[in-house]
Design a protein around this nucleic acid. Structure first.
Length: 275
DNA sequence: TCCCAGGACTACT
DNA sequence: AGTAGTCCTGGG
């Protein structure tokens, strides 16, 4: 067991829609690579346990992006747009989770034209069928399957995990990685436009999925998915319509932090059911 | 039983 | 260049 200062919003960060697989159980259980991690919080501290506590603090800091100076970013965003203040205040302590690129890729391909419970169900089925089993605190958990393991599946194996018509996309993507046609590491060296174009060359990855991968796995904060919520509040609050106009408007305003600004607005609107 | 929500691709203009 | 139809699952 380790403890860290409770100086961010653990609940919002985990439940705001960035990740699909987590368990609420007297706190939260999440699965990162080869570890099951349980987080419990009180007013001052977050208490963390894992099946492997080597270097755990650094892993948690990296995952929840705790070394980044969010205050500074928020001040930059505020200096461009005072109107966003309520959203920023509401979302205080929300962090951008630093997810694993491969898992993020698979998860967001499954997410297309799909709902959250169904996405989580498919990811859990994939993990239970093809991931490594880990015992922790007397219970069984399954790690997200490796690339090598998933490369052995047929399209119908994927379909048995309820991914539907996305089976062929997953099959092809996994083989593209095995065959080095898709190199996830190469994305670190690309700017956001190059990375979007690169990812969208692959079947099953469109604008939204590519944006999610870049924002959530590569911390490219100038990119974000435009969904119906974003369209709605950009029209209502700023009278901007059309995906390209929305992107241009937010980029001109918030520059390299536009994805973060949108995430704050999204979180605020969604939780306050503001029409 | 049917209907709906939810992205990307394909095949049309 | 723009768009209607299609692909599935889960839930009302």
């Amino acid at each position: 067991m380790i403890k860290i200062k409770n100086n961010f919003d653990l609940k919002a960060t985990i439940t705001c829609g960035q990740i699909f697989r987590y368990i609420e159980d007297d706190g939260y259980i999440i699965i990162l690579k080869d570890r099951i991690i349980k987080l419990r919080e009180d007013k001052n501290y977050i208490y963390i346990e894992s099946n492997n506590e080597d270097n755990l603090k650094q892993i948690v800091y990296d995952y929840f992006d705790l070394d980044r100076n969010y205050d500074e970013i928020e001040n930059i965003i505020l200096s461009k747009d005072e109107k966003i203040r309520p959203a920023l205040e509401f979302s205080k302590g929300l962090k951008m989770i630093h997810q694993d690129p491969f898992e993020t890729l698979i998860a967001y391909i499954i997410s297309q034209n799909n709902r959250v419970p169904s996405i989580a169900n498919s990811l859990n089925l994939l993990s239970m069928n093809y991931g490594e089993k880990v015992n922790f605190n007397g219970r069984e958990y399954y790690l997200f399957p490796s690339l090598e393991k998933l490369s052995k599946l047929t399209t119908s194996d994927f379909r048995n995990c309820k991914v539907g018509f996305r089976d062929k996309y997953l099959f092809e993507i996994v083989h593209n990685i095995i065959d080095k046609k898709l190199d996830l590491d190469s994305i670190y060296g690309k700017n956001s436009d190059e990375a979007l174009k690169y990812l969208m060359n692959f079947k099953g990855i469109g604008m939204k999925v590519a944006s999610c991968i870049l924002l959530f796995a590569y911390q490219k904060f100038d990119v974000y998915p435009v969904d119906t919520w974003v369209k709605k509040f950009m029209k209502d609050d700023y009278n901007i319509e059309g995906e390209n106009n929305i992107r241009k408007f937010t980029y001109d305003k918030y520059k390299e932090y536009s994805g973060l600004a949108i995430q704050y607005m999204f979180n605020y609107k969604r939780n306050n059911k503001i029409n």
